[in-house]
Amino acid sequence: MLVLAVSMTIAGCSSTDKNEDNVTERVVATDFILEVTTPTVLSTGETLKVKGTLKYTGIKPVEVTHGKPIIRFSFSGSNEQRNYADVGYVTEFKLGQVVEVEDEFIVTKKGKQNLIVDMTADISMTMNPIEIVVK
């Protein structure tokens, strides 16, 4: 029984250590909160998985004109390019409404790389690049 308890404790610690390499950055502007979660340490050949969440905290419904997707990512450690629709979408945001966007990049370049987060909306939000170390 003691061996099982020790094994479970060690297994729990190792998964917690891996989660320490993830970061969530947050930007707040007027009635919106933008959060991006990404790993910050990867190796070449791995897949960078990022998630962006835009939450509306205002009380009155508001229409937002945007491209698709509303949250866009680019990663300097990959050669992948994205083709996005720049205009023509309108979303009515209501209190508590959340939009999630996920993306993936194959990591091809070593060293310090940057994840760039961009909003394609008539909402003014700027997030600094997130540094990712590629081993």
Results as ranks from 00 to 15, higher is better:
84 Y>Q: 08
130 I>Q: 00
106 I>M: 08
63 E>P: 02
10 I>Q: 07
115 L>T: 01
129 P>W: 02
129 P>V: 06
98 V>K: 05
45 G>T: 05
107 V>W: 14
64 V>W: 01
86 D>Y: 01
82 R>G: 06
9 T>W: 02
122 D>A: 01
125 M>P: 02
128 N>V: 10
133 V>D: 02
101 V>N: 07
98 V>Y: 00
11 A>T: 10
116 I>E: 00
87 V>H: 01
29 A>C: 11
54 L>A: 12
66 H>C: 15
23 V>Q: 05
113 Q>A: 12
109 K>L: 11
87 V>S: 03
11 A>N: 14
94 K>R: 12
37 T>A: 02
108 T>R: 05
82 R>Q: 11
83 N>S: 12
10 I>N: 09
62 V>N: 13
15 S>M: 10
4 L>D: 09
95 L>H: 11
1 M>N: 00
23 V>C: 00
42 L>T: 03
101 V>D: 05
77 G>P: 05
45 G>Q: 06
115 L>P: 00
25 E>R: 03
120 T>Y: 13
76 S>L: 13
58 G>Q: 08
47 T>F: 04
29 A>Q: 06
122 D>L: 03
66 H>G: 10
91 T>K: 05
99 V>S: 08
5 A>F: 02
6 V>E: 06
30 T>I: 14
100 E>W: 00
13 C>Q: 09
31 D>C: 03
125 M>S: 02
88 G>D: 09
7 S>L: 13
44 T>G: 02
39 P>H: 00
14 S>H: 14
20 E>F: 12
112 K>E: 15
80 E>V: 13
120 T>I: 06
74 S>R: 15
115 L>N: 01
25 E>D: 03
67 G>V: 04
19 N>F: 14
99 V>W: 13
92 E>F: 05
58 G>P: 05
9 T>Y: 08
100 E>G: 00
89 Y>K: 07
71 I>F: 15
96 G>L: 08
11 A>K: 13
131 E>K: 07
123 I>C: 13
114 N>E: 15
41 V>Y: 05
111 G>V: 11
127 M>E: 05
4 L>W: 04
2 L>A: 12
125 M>C: 08
109 K>Q: 13
28 V>F: 02
41 V>N: 07
80 E>Q: 15
116 I>R: 03
7 S>W: 05
93 F>Y: 06
92 E>M: 11
126 T>W: 08
40 T>I: 01
86 D>F: 01
87 V>I: 06
130 I>N: 00
33 I>E: 10
124 S>H: 15
30 T>P: 01
88 G>F: 14
79 N>S: 11
134 V>Y: 00
135 K>R: 14
13 C>G: 08
22 N>C: 04
83 N>V: 14
14 S>F: 10
84 Y>E: 11
120 T>N: 12
131 E>M: 01
129 P>H: 06
6 V>P: 02
63 E>M: 06
87 V>K: 07
55 K>L: 07
134 V>S: 01
118 D>C: 11
26 R>Q: 09
82 R>K: 14
110 K>S: 10
17 D>W: 14
2 L>D: 09
4 L>I: 09
63 E>F: 03
50 V>F: 04
52 G>A: 07
14 S>C: 13
65 T>D: 05
41 V>H: 03
93 F>N: 03
17 D>A: 15
64 V>A: 08
26 R>S: 11
5 A>E: 09
